[in-house]
Design a protein around this nucleic acid. Sequence first.
DNA 1: TAGTTGGGTTTTTTT
DNA 2: AACCCAACTA
Length: 768
Amino acid sequence: MSIYDTLNNEQKEAVLQTEGPVLILAGAGSGKTRVLTHRIAYMIDHCGVQPWNILAITFTNKAAGEMRQRVDDLIGTGSEQIWVSTFHSTCAKILRRHIDRIGYDTNYTIYDTDDSKSVIKEVCKKLNIDTKQLKERAILSAISSAKNEYISPEEYRNSTEGDYMLQKIAACYTEYQLALRKNNALDFDDLLVKTVELFQTCPDVLESFQERFKYIMVDEYQDTNTVQFNFIEMLARRYRNLCVVGDDDQSIYKFRGANIRNILDFEQVFPDAHVIKLEQNYRSTGRILDGANAVIGNNLHRKQKSLWTDKGNGSAIHLRAFDNAYEEADFLVNDIRKKVREKDADYNDCAVLFRTNAQARLVEERMVLAGVPYNVVGGVNFYSRKEIKDVLAYLKTVDNARDDLAVRRIINVPKRGIGATTIGRIQTYADLNGMSFFGAMQVVDEIPGIGKAAEKIKAFVTMILGFRSRGEMYTLEEQLQEIFDISGYLDELENSDDDDAEDRLENIDEFTNKLIAYETEADEPTLGGFLQEVALVADIDNVDGDDNKVLLMTMHAAKGLEFNHVYLAGMEDGLFPSYMTIMSDDPFEIEEERRLAYVGMTRAKEDLTLTFAKCRMIRGETQYNAPSRFLKEIPDNLMDNRVPGKKKEEVIFDEDRMFSFHGSPVVPREQIFARPKATVTRRGTPEYAKPFALKGAAGLAGSGISKGVEGAGTAPDYVVGDRVSHIKYGEGQVTALEKGERDYKVTVMFDQCGQKIMYAAFAKLKKL
DNA sequence: TAGTTGGGTTTTTTT
DNA sequence: AACCCAACTA
């Protein structure tokens, strides 16, 4: 009896095939982590592979830690020698040693998205780009896409002929890279780009890593982008022991450059690849899996596969409809409480998943009211919070004052009476003389026009140099404490009467703890090492599954996780799938949303609940949305459709195509979706390609659903100034009417309910 | 220089 | 609703 006997045949095959290129197509919940860990164990235990010859790339730092732990559990020891980490951390480590070969300093800093945005802002100012016309965001995303495709600024510029906008972006890209280089900084994408560049320009470095990493494994391969592929391909070129694991159905990161072709074309790139399919799902019960399979079956462009389980049917997928988002949130909280009360679940068995981060707010509020312990994952990253970024800027300045961004961030925090004018003068002088901002500050007396601010500048410089000189003998913790004490940062926060000052102080305490943890755990703790580690931490990395808390997060963040009880909230067209993808004429976009739905559903082990609200506030606007089209793709017999708390009522479509609740608690789903049965998932005709208003739904033609899909509605029969009546809000006067892309947007001042803005097709106003 | 206010904008997802 | 920025005031 060995540890490998517990694997099924395909898993075993994947474990034993240690040589050459291997593609493991691992369906959701098919035990791929087990395969990877056992494969590593097998290589070390049975094939004489040295642990340090193995590189395993995971999607998150958390997954990396868990993988290492599990390998440790299998083979006892030696796992600390394996490189297990994310693409970004791996590259950061390589660059820490060798980036000086391509003209950067090895104590480079890593810029997050906010930092990049600040740089772009300056670049735009310098290039006289009107950011109203060409948004910073758009520029950054164009640059990021270019980097993900390993396109240099020069190449980018050469491909922009004749396109004015692209030329502007190309100019920004060039300037942006110059600015980063000047600050000795890399952005996230650069970590990959510069590593590949390093490998290309320094064959000796590449060779040393090829020798080092004779066996390479990549998890979540479907979400790799082109540079990541280049990186891996270069490393694996020599020994060709490359094992990639992924599931094309779970590819959900196209927006950040993921190239699904990497997995789809693996066999073309490596014709001798062994392909192994893992199709037995060990996670979910039957109905959940069947539902997820039915949904994903609507995607045309995928590798054929069929996941199965021997777990039995399990309970039905629950579908719940609500009047509005508040009721939905109440339900979520109460349902979880009920499960806990009845001992069906602990809080940490439950996760509520959303399409967008903002949706968590409402549920969070209700959880607080109900006293349900919860944890929101994502949204604003811990290390992106203002106070944390301030502290980080201090540390960065102490560590490496070449980062102008960091210096300027803290020069007047806390207030030192150094204002915009002074900062501008220093910056001009620095630019003119090709020095860093901090460098210019050190010679402040030379700078014209500074006047009495000079003393304040000198005090600041002395303070920073003081911090730096003490770095030699102080521990990191002591250094941090010193910064807190001397800079006056804590004092200012403590004396602030800001509402959230307390939260901020708590965050700073937490940050201090993290620094202490780093210093105790790292082999050779350094300030630079800490800053690097911290720059690459994702929110999900800090989730502790042992905490008995309900997790609230996006479906993206939930990738790779599993829970006994999963709630997918906000299942509405326009929210999920998102409005952008519905309106797009690229059908691949909705396929990506569908994959996200698949990811969400397959997180559930025993119990899956889908909820939607017919109305919710989005960005300050009340929106009325039809139930998600993905719901329609789940076969009837897998679901129970009920409206909790609406006893003896039934759900029907009413006049204005909304849901209303009267009658029995069990709802015939045809009435919810207004469509004939036959439209379920038939391969070859994607649901979105068909009109919704079909025979049998004649009475509902022109419903909110079909309107939303079929394009902009026809002009309403009322105009501004007319009196109209609404089924719920009563009578009112039209105050504005605006033609939007998909429909007329109508604003009505209702006599009873005040002003509402809604889409004409959904509102179904009657002219009086 | 610092703090406030009003107006305009808005990514859906993240290392 | 929430955030960011410019302009204004103390």
